[in-house]
């Protein structure tokens, strides 16, 4: 038997995550990823507008099924993600230290916090309705109540820092209410999000609920902004040009466009809040006649 030193390593090809599968970008383009020392780490997909279009089709297709699940079941699936991530803590800690320039303590903190945050948002799936919904006093014989419903297909331009925790902290509060997403990842270590896609894929999360595109954020902005089948956009850490582009393009199709400053430290308590659920729910008020 050959000694281990003779062995050629097998490197992982990072692709996109779309409709519950891992396709290559249709464009055939790639981006080189280096670690903080300038060493080559991996080639990742440079997603195109057609990849975005395909991801929107998958997200739209998945919407009815996902929003139609019981809140409890969505919580179970989010909890399952935490279980899967817990089992791969060491992998992610290694990735963050070896490829993303983290020191050991920060890497452990980011991964632990990501697991805990998954559990925390899993708990909110069947509670946010009670907290944010209301029964309203009205001057007629009606029982009047207001309930949040998911907005629909939401594109998320994820943070440029914290490749794991930034992703979890921005995507989870959007999907827990029943939205489906296309998450665009453009940060120094986008392969971490693609590694996380394997966690998602093992968590009974239906295909198409979270779709992940790696690539160049500026390139996809205008296409996401103008796409009429996207109902909302969350842009984390936008510059003024990005705000203007999304504002103008989004107006044509009356999108919800939400800007979030982001955090230097995503492990802080301020980076998680039930109010992060609110930008992508629509409140519906029902008037129900009261009998005698």
């Amino acid at each position: 038997m050959a000694s281990t030193s003779d062995r050629l390593s097998v490197y992982k090809t990072y692709k996109l995550y779309m409709d519950g599968g891992f396709p290559r970008t249709e464009s055939g383009r790639h981006l080189k990823i280096q670690d903080d020392q300038g060493q080559f780490v991996a080639n990742i997909c440079h997603a195109s507008r057609k990849d975005l279009r395909d991801a929107v089709v998958a997200a739209r297709e998945a919407l009815d099924g996902w929003s139609g699940r019981t809140a409890f079941n969505r919580g179970q699936i989010l909890h399952r993600m935490a279980e899967m991530l817990e089992g791969r803590r060491a992998d992610f800690i290694d990735m963050l230290t070896e490829q993303a320039g983290y020191d050991e303590n920060d890497a452990v903190a980011e991964v632990n916090c990501a697991v805990d945050r998954l559990i925390w948002y899993a708990g909110w799936t069947d509670k946010f309705e009670q907290v944010f919904g209301s029964t309203n006093p009205v001057a007629s014989k009606h029982f009047n109540f207001t309930l949040p419903e998911p907005t629909g297909v939401v594109t998320i331009f994820t943070p440029r820092n914290a490749p794991l925790l930034g992703f979890v902290s921005t995507v989870l509060p959007v999907i827990l209410s029943g939205n489906t997403t296309i998450a665009v990842v453009d940060n120094p270590a986008p392969q971490v999000a693609m590694e996380f896609a394997e966690v998602l894929n093992n968590s009974d999360l239906p295909g198409g609920v979270i779709n992940i595109l790696t690539g160049v954020r500026e390139e996809l902005l205008v296409h996401a902004g103008g796409h009429k089948d996207i109902d909302g956009i969350l842009s984390v850490g936008p510059d003024s040009e990005e705000r203007e582009t999304l504002g103008l393009e989004g107006a044509d199709s009356v999108k919800r466009v939400e800007f979030l400053e982001g955090h230097d430290d995503w492990t802080s308590d301020e980076a998680q809040s039930p109010y992060r659920i609110l930008p992508f729910v629509e409140f519906k008020t029902n008037w129900h006649p009261v009998g005698r």
Binding site: H223, G226, E249, S253
Partner: peptide, 8 residues
């Protein structure tokens, strides 16, 4: 229009 449309 140059923008992707929606069946809705």
């Amino acid at each position: 229009t140059g923008r992707y449309h929606s069946e809705r």
